[in-house]
Amino acid sequence: GKMTGIVKWFNADKGFAFITPDDGSKDVFVHFSAIQNDGYKSLDEGQKVSFTIESGAKGPAAGNVTSL
């Protein structure tokens, strides 16, 4: 299901971020390909987002990341 959280930090050079979920679970890795914005895919620290949890090769990662 959809979860919500806050972007903890975003590394534009490497194209990934971490989200701190609102439910208090541990921070979730985000690859820029999961960001659903049109055009430039970036996130801002402190931004509120919704996302799903996908199981990636290196463990859980956020999918369908959308700005709220």
Rank of each mutant, 00 (worst) to 15 (best):
Gly15Ile: 03
Asp38Ser: 12
Ile53Ser: 05
Val49Gly: 00
Tyr40Gly: 11
Ser55Arg: 06
Phe29Tyr: 11
Val28Cys: 11
Gly39Cys: 14
Ala57Val: 14
Thr4Asn: 04
Asp22Gly: 03
Ala17Met: 09
Gly39Ser: 10
Gly39Tyr: 07
Val65Ser: 06
Ser42Tyr: 13
Phe51Ile: 02
Asp22Cys: 14
Ala17Glu: 00
Lys26His: 08
Gly63Glu: 11
Ser55Glu: 13
Asp44Thr: 14
Lys58Glu: 15
Ser25Gly: 12
Asn37Lys: 07
Ala34Gly: 06
Lys41Tyr: 10
Ser33His: 08
Ser67Glu: 15
Gly15Ser: 07
Phe29Pro: 02
Lys48Ala: 08
Ala57Phe: 12
Val49Asp: 00
Ser67Val: 06
Lys8Ile: 09
Lys8Gln: 06
Val30Trp: 15
Gln47Asn: 05
Asn64Thr: 09
Lys58Ala: 15
Ser67Met: 05
Ala17Gly: 15
Leu43Trp: 10
Thr20Phe: 02
Gly59Lys: 09
Ala57Ser: 12
Asn64Ala: 08
Asp23Arg: 02
Ala17Tyr: 08
Lys48Gly: 03
Asp23Gly: 05
Phe10Tyr: 11
Gly15Ala: 07
Lys58Gln: 15
Ala62Thr: 10
Asp38Trp: 13
Val49Cys: 03
Met3Arg: 09
Phe29Gln: 05
Asp27Met: 09
Tyr40Met: 09
Gln47Ile: 08
Phe32Val: 07
Thr66Gly: 15
Gln36Met: 12
Asn11Met: 06
Tyr40Leu: 13
Val65Trp: 01
Gly56Ile: 12
Tyr40Phe: 12
Ala57Asn: 13
Ala57Lys: 08
Asp27Lys: 03
Gly1Ser: 11
Pro21Asn: 02
Thr66Asn: 15
Met3Ile: 07
Val65Arg: 03
Lys41Gln: 10
Ser55Phe: 10
Asp23Cys: 05
Gln47Thr: 10
Ser25Leu: 03
Phe32Ala: 05
Asp22Tyr: 03
Lys58Asp: 15
Ala34Trp: 13
Leu43Tyr: 05
Gly56Ser: 09
Met3Glu: 02
Phe18Ala: 07
Phe51Trp: 11
Thr4His: 05
Gly39Phe: 09
Gly39His: 12
Glu45Arg: 13
Asp22Leu: 07
Asn11Gln: 05
Gly15Trp: 05
Ser67Ile: 15
Thr20Trp: 03
Ala34Cys: 15
Ala57Cys: 15
Lys41Asp: 10
Ser50Glu: 08
Ile6Pro: 00
Pro21Lys: 01
Gly63His: 09
Val65Tyr: 01
Lys8Cys: 08
Ser25Pro: 02
Thr4Cys: 13
Ala61Met: 11
Ile19Glu: 00
Phe16Gly: 04
Asp38Thr: 08
Gln47Leu: 09
Lys14Pro: 01
Phe51Ala: 00
Asn37Ala: 10
Ile6Thr: 12
Ser25Lys: 03
Asn37Pro: 11
Gly39Arg: 05
Ile53Gln: 06
Lys48Trp: 14
Lys48Cys: 13
Gln36Tyr: 10
Val49Thr: 01
Asp44Asn: 13
Trp9Ile: 04
Phe16Met: 13
Ser67Lys: 03
Tyr40Ala: 09
His31Leu: 14
Val30Tyr: 05
Pro60Ala: 06
Ala61Asp: 14
Phe18His: 05
Gly1Lys: 12
Phe51Tyr: 11
Gly15Asn: 06
Gly15Phe: 06
Gly46Val: 02
Gln36Lys: 06
Glu45Pro: 13
Met3His: 07
Ala34Ser: 12
Asp27Thr: 06
Gly5Thr: 01
Asn64Tyr: 05
Val30Ile: 10
Asp44Gly: 13
Thr52Val: 10
His31Tyr: 14
Leu43Asn: 01
Val65His: 09
Ala12Tyr: 08
Ala62Tyr: 07
Glu45Val: 14
Lys26Asp: 09
Ser42Arg: 12
Ser33Ile: 04
Gly1Gln: 12
Thr4Ala: 04
Asn11Phe: 08
Gly5Lys: 00
Phe16Ile: 14
Val65Lys: 15
Val65Ile: 11
Gly5Cys: 03
Ile53Phe: 10
Asn64Gly: 07
Asp22Arg: 02
Ala62Phe: 07
Glu45Gln: 12
Phe10Glu: 01
Asn37Val: 12
Ser50Gln: 08
Glu45Leu: 15
Asn11Leu: 07
Ala34Phe: 14
Phe32Leu: 09
Glu54Trp: 06
Ile19Arg: 00
Asp27Phe: 03
Ile53Asn: 04
Val28Met: 10
Gly63Ser: 12
Lys48Tyr: 10
Lys14Arg: 09
Thr52Gln: 08
Gly63Asn: 10
Asp22Asn: 04
Gly39Asp: 09
Lys26Ala: 12
Phe16Pro: 00
Phe16Val: 14
Thr66Tyr: 01
Val7Glu: 00
Thr4Arg: 05
Gly15Gln: 12
Ser33Met: 04
Gly39Ala: 09
Lys2Asn: 08
Asp22Ser: 06
Gly24Glu: 02
Asn64Lys: 05
Gly46His: 03
Asp44Leu: 14
Gly39Glu: 09
Thr4Phe: 09
Ala34Met: 14
Asp22Glu: 06
Lys14His: 06
Lys2Arg: 13
Gln47Glu: 06
Gln47Phe: 06
Ser33Phe: 07
Lys58Asn: 14
Val49Lys: 00
Thr20His: 06
Lys48Pro: 08
Phe32Asp: 01
Asn64Phe: 08
Thr20Gly: 04
Gly63Cys: 15
Ile19His: 00
Thr20Ala: 10
Ala34Lys: 13
Gly1Leu: 13
Gly24Arg: 02
Val30Cys: 06
Val30Pro: 00
Thr4Tyr: 10
Phe32Gln: 04
Val28Gly: 00
Gly24Thr: 01
Phe18Lys: 07
Ala57Thr: 13
Lys14Gln: 05
Ile35Phe: 14
Lys8Tyr: 03
Phe29Met: 14
Ile53Pro: 05
Pro21Val: 04
Lys8Asp: 00
Thr20Ile: 09
Ile19Asn: 00
Lys41Pro: 10
Ala57Trp: 10
Asn11Pro: 01
Trp9Arg: 03
Gly5Met: 01
Lys2Phe: 14
Lys58Val: 14
Thr4Glu: 04
Leu43Ala: 02
Lys41Met: 10
Glu54Ile: 08
Ser55Gln: 12
Phe18Gln: 07
Ser67Pro: 05
Met3Gln: 07
Ala62Trp: 05
Trp9Phe: 10
Lys14Trp: 10
Asp22Val: 04
Trp9Tyr: 13
Lys2His: 09
Asp44Pro: 05
Ile35Met: 06
Lys58Pro: 14
Lys14Val: 05
Phe29Arg: 06
Asn64Val: 13
Thr66His: 13
Lys8Ser: 04
Gly24Ala: 02
Ala17Asp: 00
Val7Met: 02
Gly24Cys: 06
Gly24Asn: 04
Val28Phe: 07
Gln36Ala: 11
Thr20Arg: 11
Asn64Pro: 08
Val30His: 01
Leu68Pro: 15
Glu45Asn: 11
Phe16Trp: 07
Ser55Ile: 13
Val7Arg: 00
Phe32Thr: 04
Thr4Leu: 06
Ser42Val: 11
Tyr40Thr: 08
Ala34Gln: 12
Ala61Val: 14
Val28Tyr: 05
Gln47Arg: 07
Ala62Arg: 04
Ser50Tyr: 11
Gly39Val: 08
Asp27Leu: 05
Gly1Glu: 09
Val49Pro: 00
Gly59Glu: 14
Ile6Met: 05
Asp38Phe: 13
Ala62Gln: 12
Ser25Glu: 04
Lys26Thr: 08
Gly15Met: 12
Ile53Lys: 05
Ile53Val: 08
Trp9Asn: 03
Val49Gln: 00
Asp27Pro: 08
Gly63Asp: 12
